[in-house]
Design a protein around this nucleic acid. Structure first.
Lengths: 190, 190
DNA sequence: CGCGGGTTTGATGATGCTCAAGCCCGGTGG
DNA sequence: CCACCGGGCTTGAGCATCATCAAACCCGCG
């Protein structure tokens, strides 16, 4: 169950057998059914989550009671509400399994112990967060430079496998448009 | 000139006198006049920039030849085009001084040496990037939940000092609206 | 088989953009 | 010290994009 995470970490730093065991004592696993929640609005987000297999999404409920998806995580991505994690403040978000998923997670106090025992993990997380930030910068750029129509077609063409795995209305809300408008755009394709 | 940076680093990790000297050998300084460029479209962004004093903005030119500001950095913030920095790819962005500024910067190869000699800096950057990511998540949430009008008033009320230091048209483009529309909104205030 | 979540359709309309023109004001050169 | 220049801000008319709302439809799942 730790296979993908270990592989991922070893892309960036060296982990020997002893350290591997330490890791496995501090990192927990959980299997989720479709639609199961990892984090609920109002809870404090005390963990960083790693998608070993499956797909998660992060969303909040806006003033009109719509679910607004702000992030997806698949494959070997980390996800968390960092504001809540850092400040121990109640989260505005839900984190939910889009499909049956296997998740690894480190709780904050365990992360501290882990970083103390394997300091090079700071390097790993430094690199991961930096990549995350790069992705986030690019996403913001796309949001600023493209119309909603362009955004949708760009997304569909860039991540066609995504359009298969994830329902339309989640993609719509991730791109900041209504399901009705997505419908209209899809009709254009014929 | 290194005062704010050192203070900032010491908020998170310990730096002794020897390490302080190492830091100062690898981190360079530059003073910028208003409107001077730190990074130009097409260049590879080889440094991380720290605002010791002043204000920077990051922008790109969109398909209609408008400047789109995607980020500001003041005070003790780090800024960079992380995509370009990580992949050594040509940047889409300009980074420019909004006002006369004092900037510190680490070049990529120097950062590697620095992290080798002071491994705890990985912890510092881990924390910094995590905070950056938290801010970025919150920004995206605001972009999704507020109308342009709400965004503008929220921004003005939350960062009134910003509205003083930065010209209207930059704030407009940072929030993704036209200067004309900002005008209209300001008129509403009377 | 029937229910319900997700998608489609179409009519209507608001938000916020475009374009063109004028204005204000601070900086620069004569 | 004044005049001019030009960048930035304002104004207003017209309009495109995209949201809203209501209804029907489709299909997978219990």
């Amino acid at each position: 169950m730790y296979h993908n995470l270990l592989k991922h970490i070893r892309q960036y730093i060296e982990i020997d057998d002893k350290q591997e065991i330490i890791l496995e004592t501090y990192i927990k696993t959980i299997k989720l059914k479709k639609k199961a929640l990892l984090l609920h609005y109002g809870q404090i987000c005390t963990s960083l989550f790693f998608v070993e297999k499956g797909c998660l999404r992060m969303y909040f409920i806006d003033s009109k009671a719509n679910e607004q998806t702000t992030q997806f995580a698949i494959d070997k991505w980390w996800i968390s509400d960092y504001m809540s994690f850092i400040n121990k403040s109640p989260s505005d978000y839900y984190i939910q399994a889009v499909e049956p998923s296997e998740i690894l997670f480190v709780e904050k106090n365990n992360l501290e112990k882990l970083l103390f025992q394997i300091p090079s993990l700071d390097r790993y997380f430094h690199i991961i967060m930096q990549k995350n930030l790069a992705a986030s910068q690019q996403r913001i750029k796309y949001l600023y430079e493209m119309s909603k129509e362009e955004l949708y077609f760009y997304f569909i063409n860039s991540f066609p496998e995504f359009a298969q795995r994830v329902p339309q209305f989640m993609i719509a809300s991730y791109l900041g448009l209504t399901p009705e408008y997505v419908s209209e755009l899809r009709k254009k394709l014929q």
